[in-house]
């Protein structure tokens, strides 16, 4: 009997240690789920905000398509090397004016994303032309920045140009 005295405490302490290990491993397994949730909401907020900005960019393009195309063509020509000496110079590039200065509707305007905590956003247009047909693919890129999170979005819009000829005289 004497040899076996004190065994109850040892057994109980071992059991308690075993249950503690089980409990801690269970907590660790669920803690990974907790970390993914804040990013999930930010992702959803970013997706919807970017969609809205892309639609605003399309609205601007649809409102003044001729000015857009001419400004874009000027930009492409202006960036060629060597520069065409006949090309007029402007203090502000017409295409930069079309994109908008910093803190305008398409470029990080304050309050545009309220109540979502967007830090900054930028919009770009690119044109991929098909010369054989009068069609363009206008690509609108939006980059959205949150604290600790950044995402870029690309949307492509098919655009066609057509010339309406006056009716022939009878």
């Amino acid at each position: 009997m004497r040899k076996r005295s004190g065994m109850a405490i040892v057994i109980v302490l071992s059991l308690a240690l075993f249950m503690l290990i089980l409990g801690v491993s269970y907590l660790k397994s669920i803690s990974q789920v907790t970390h993914t949730n804040p990013h999930r909401l930010t992702q959803v907020q970013s997706d919807f905000f970017a969609q809205g900005i892309q639609k605003l960019a399309v609205l601007k393009f649809k409102a003044v398509p001729a000015d857009f195309y001419h400004a874009y063509r000027y930009k492409v020509e202006d960036e060629k090397f060597p520069r065409n000496p006949l090309l007029p110079k402007f203090t502000t590039s017409p295409f930069s004016a079309f994109l908008g200065a910093d803190k305008t509707i398409l470029q990080g305007m304050e309050g545009m994303a309220d109540p979502v905590p967007v830090i900054d956003y930028k919009t770009e247009y690119l044109v991929n032309s098909s010369k054989k047909f009068d069609r363009d693919m206008v690509e609108i890129r939006v980059k959205v920045d949150f604290e600790g999170f950044s995402q870029s979005y690309i949307a492509n819009y098919d655009a066609s140009r057509s010339l309406i000829l006056p009716a022939a005289a009878p």
């Binding site: 000015d67 400004a71 063509r73 000027y74 200065a101």
Partner: peptide, 27 residues
């Protein structure tokens, strides 16, 4: 909403194929 642009100004020298003939007005 209001969007800023430098509008294209077409004059007698304008030709679509020649970018050097493009003229843009003030913002």
């Amino acid at each position: 909403v209001s969007f800023g642009i430098m509008p294209l100004e077409i004059d007698n020298s304008y030709e679509f194929a020649k970018v050097e003939t493009y003229r843009f007005g003030a913002l």
